[in-house]
């Protein structure tokens, strides 16, 4: 079988016999769609790709808490307040499941967190848009979580065991997230004129960023191919985007709202959804840090870390003293 991992040009070191054996075993596991587990040998590039992907995913969950946490104290009913609180708390949980998967690849959470706080690591650019109104809680649940789920369900079968297992847990919990978002929008669209306007405005703002959550078009996404060869990704960016846009095109009718896309239609000939051109320049600008609230999101995270330092330190000091007194 051909090695699943390309030789990096410029690396001329001849692999040792042991390395060749290990690579062959890895290739065989991938070849029969089995799983790679933490203590297995794996190519450096595979480890690096996964560490980056899983930790970015974790960072996205953690930063993604902010736009919604912003509305917990203002939620317009106590039931909605409970649901929103449970949802944001779940996101912290999902971040933790994912950090725990990332850590099995050999980078500890402090280091991953440091990469986030110093801007070396990225997170999903959608969270760099502000949550301006209560209806955004609906649009985030329906569109953002909807896109996330479409992305994540295939990841449950990712070749790296701990990642797949974390995704199963995340997906199970997230199925309520999308539904509660849909319900918020439905209540608003059936409510007063002002409420309906609020709902439509939120859908208008989140539609395009949600479609861009699947990443750049396939021809501009060079890393996708390798991820698919490694059985990390199962579908291409465009395939997932197609699947998603098809779902929301139907669901929006139930909501009695519209998608801000006059070009949206299903093309019977190509069996493809046609949607408007997405603004990839804006996407890149947001990733680079120039979205409306990148600076605010990062500072909030840094602040929590900074303000919590004395607490973490005290707990560690207490634990160390306990160990000492046990020894003494």
């Amino acid at each position: 079988m051909a090695p699943t991992t390309p030789q990096e040009p410029g690396l001329s070191a001849v692999p040792s016999y042991e390395e060749e054996q290990s690579q062959a075993r890895f290739d065989a596991l991938i070849g029969k769609d089995s799983r790679i587990e933490p203590r297995d040998w794996m190519p450096d590039a595979y480890r690096k790709t996964l560490t980056r992907q899983v930790s970015q995913h974790a960072h996205s969950e953690i930063i993604g808490m902010q736009p919604e946490a912003n509305w917990i104290t203002r939620a317009p009913s106590l039931k909605r307040k409970s649901i929103l609180m449970a949802k944001v708390q779940d996101e912290a949980g999902h971040g933790l499941y994912l950090y725990s998967a990332a850590e099995t690849l050999g980078t500890d959470r402090d280091e991953l967190n440091d990469q986030l706080l110093t801007g070396r690591a990225k997170y999903s650019s959608i969270f760099n848009y502000p949550a301006r109104s209560w209806a955004d809680m609906g649009a985030i649940g329906w569109l953002v979580d909807g896109a996330a789920i479409a992305n994540q369900v295939p990841l449950c079968r990712a070749s790296y065991g701990p990642y797949g297992r974390a995704m199963v847990r995340v997906c199970k919990e997230e199925s309520f997230h999308q539904r509660q978002g849909f319900e918020i929008l439905l209540s608003l669209s059936r409510g007063s004129e002002a409420q309906k306007k609020m709902a439509q405005d939120a859908v208008n703002r989140f539609y395009e960023p949600a479609l861009m959550m699947f990443g750049p078009p396939d021809e501009q996404s060079p890393n996708s191919k390798q991820s698919m060869a490694w059985n990390i990704k199962r579908f291409s960016n465009d395939e997932l985007r197609q699947r998603f846009v098809g779902m929301i095109a139907e669901q929006v009718k139930v909501l009695g709202l519209t998608l801000p896309d006059p070009e949206l239609r299903y093309d019977e000939e190509t069996k493809q959804w046609i949607h408007k051109d997405l603004n990839w320049d804006e996407f890149m600008a947001v990733i680079k840090g120039n979205g409306p609230v990148n600076a605010q999101r990062m500072e909030r995270r840094r602040e929590a870390h900074r303000e919590g330092a004395w607490v973490r330190e005290a707990a560690a000091a207490y634990a160390a003293k306990q160990v000492q007194s046990e020894v003494a």
């Binding site: 912290a92 919590g308 607490v311 973490r312």
Partner: peptide, 12 residues
């Protein structure tokens, strides 16, 4: 406190 705690476990 949610999203502002000293450690993620404490957010939860």
């Amino acid at each position: 406190w949610i999203s502002r705690a000293p450690e993620l476990e404490e957010d939860i």
